[in-house]
Write a protein that binds this DNA or RNA. Structure first.
Lengths: 207, 207
DNA sequence: GTCTATAGAATGATAGAC
DNA sequence: GTCTATCATTCTATAGAC
């Protein structure tokens, strides 16, 4: 008689715990990266916030860089999910606007992890991470396709190289204008989003 | 007989040396801040690059933060000089464009010091620095005035609060799109400037 | 001889790694 | 919890200017 069939999966509980803890870690790292950046974030405070020992952290992630990397991979996956959630029938320009606004919403809420574009060791770690690179590629391909469609339809300036448009949209994820306007306390988050969406797509000049 | 009249200024040589050295220090710090940022910059490498002892550095500037501060003050002064060098007859919109392009040129050349917007101790040091704050105020006032004039003349979108326009222009000084396009090696610096100027003032949407 | 600048070592604190 | 590396900052002793 094969008892395996009736046996409840023995490891499942422990694995679930580990997975849950890993999610908690990543969420914590995500917030710290958004709030203070990679350099200012310390492994100690992450461990403290999650409520585990530093040593346990290093069981999951072997370095501070991998920690940040995991958060970036998770963020990228969320972007992929959002992109796939968009209705297929929507016009490409509207999809682009939706993704851009979603990105900026995260940033305004302090949930957009940002890496110092200068830290080379971190960038190297990211570039070596297949999950991250695959996600980045998928997101870039989706947006790139929409950009070209929108240009063909005359809704995005055809004089701009698609890659320049892509970078400009990506850059909204770390646009300091959002924080500055928020600090000024003169506008609601929605108004700030509208303003930056307007400057991004319509420019500063009068139309 | 009063010999003071004929005496050449005795201290002048030494003072000139000190001033020259201070300039060299600030220039070096400026480059490091542009290249690797405040956190990654070490006092040792600054001293090494200038070719003086660390102790001598601390004779001029009593802390790493003051060092960065001095570089920011110098950068701000350069901005003030540029602003004042613009011909009075120029249209406000053209002045705004000139300043924006000049700023981005510096950034492209790796000469635009940028501070992590997150580092609070550094920000506090800067906010406490009268020279810096005065410079910032003067620059903001000049640009703010031109923005309102340009809006009155119908050249800048009147629907945008002047402060939003101001922040959007300031943000060009640390726009990552510049670096990304430069890394791509598909465009000359001039083309990159034209592209970002276009997305900034005319937006991504077709006109 | 006195004063200053320098080089290099010493100190102390922080924070990553295990 | 411990070990260790990195750095900002300070100290000390030497060399040189005046």
């Amino acid at each position: 008689m094969n008892t395996d069939i009736q046996k409840p999966p023995k490891k499942s509980f422990k694995i679930q715990m580990l997975a849950a803890r890993e999610m908690a870690i990543i969420q914590s790292v995500n917030r710290f990266l958004a709030e203070k950046g990679f350099d200012a974030m310390t492994v100690d405070e992450v461990a403290a916030e999650v409520g585990i020992a530093k040593a346990s952290l290093y069981k999951h992630f072997t370095s501070k860089e991998e920690l940040a990397c995991a958060a970036m991979v998770a963020a990228m996956r969320k972007a992929q999910d959002f992109i796939q959630s968009l209705p297929a029938g929507q016009a490409p320009i509207d999809k682009l606007k939706a993704v851009t606004r979603w990105t900026m919403t995260l940033k305004l809420q302090g949930l957009m992890p940002s890496l110092p574009s200068q830290n080379s060791s971190l960038r190297a770690t990211l570039m070596a991470n297949k999950d991250y690179m695959d996600g980045l590629m998928e997101v870039s391909d989706a947006l790139g396709g929409w950009i070209e469609e929108a240009q063909a339809q005359g809704q995005i300036n055809k004089g701009l190289p698609a890659v320049a448009v892509l970078y400009t949209l990506f850059a909204r994820a770390c646009d300091p204008v959002l924080e500055f306007l928020k600090m000024g306390e003169q506008h609601t988050d929605e108004q700030i989003l509208d303003l930056v969406m307007s400057t991004c797509f319509d420019g500063l000049s009068a139309r």
